[in-house]
Design a protein around this nucleic acid. Sequence first.
DNA 1: TATTGTTATACTCTATAACTATA
DNA 2: TATAGTTATAGAGTATAACAATA
Lengths: 146, 146
Amino acid sequence: MPETPRTGTAQLMELLSASLVAYYGDFTAASATEGLTASQGRTLGVLRRGPSAMRALATTLACDASNMTGIIDRLEKRGLVLREPSPTDRRVKNVLLTADGERTIDAIRARMHTTLAGLDALGDEDRAALAGLLERVFVRPPAADD
Amino acid sequence: MPETPRTGTAQLMELLSASLVAYYGDFTAASATEGLTASQGRTLGVLRRGPSAMRALATTLACDASNMTGIIDRLEKRGLVLREPSPTDRRVKNVLLTADGERTIDAIRARMHTTLAGLDALGDEDRAALAGLLERVFVRPPAADD
DNA sequence: TATTGTTATACTCTATAACTATA
DNA sequence: TATAGTTATAGAGTATAACAATA
């Protein structure tokens, strides 16, 4: 066994895969009860943290910018989001949640019964540990230069 | 503040949402390098754990059974999966990964650089802790009766 | 009767390429 | 010249409804 064997990475990736499938399925079903697709629900989830330009939204969701036009069109038609021109760059449009959009994404999360039951099984200490680990693995700031 | 305030659930759901977006984006990009869509990649990921009937596959992926026909059709046409008749129930078809399909899903996971870098930042103890927590939250056996 | 897998249909998602307006 | 957002297009994903074969 030379150097660091990196033991457990394959198992961890397998576990993350299973976790994603479980979470994503729960999320998709919860979004459907609000009449939304999973992509529309994910978009609301990103916007829950604050307004975002169309381009930044596409980057965050890892999809092409041209997709966002249609997704935001449908969400806007239902009154869940708004497009506002940027005050500093006339090319840019900022997207933000309406009060109804905020209510909707909160309702979706409240209906994720499988995930909520899983979290329920954790004590306060384990919940804090999970939060810390997720933050370190997935929410790290983007590398300064790469 | 009556009873258990359930403090932190909203924050945990927010963190899980951000983690899903990060993981799913990484997974989608890695699948694309193999010429596969995210849904095709997820299907391979589920089958990595073992063969599955069409119906069970749809249930696991939380999509309608009619979707699986098209997804498996395309994966089969590329030689990544196989359909086999069940020996015990002539209505059922079991889907399994070919050697090429197994190689492909492993290659996709090996190309998830953002996620792998995040896991890399964890020590052995933290990796074990994360694995345990994910298992408790997402991989619990389905409730016996609900 | 109920269940498995499939087909037909309509809508949504998705990437590619080309375009307009602005920087 | 480069970037933000949109449009057009074609292929893939998605749920609904209906169907044949089997249990």
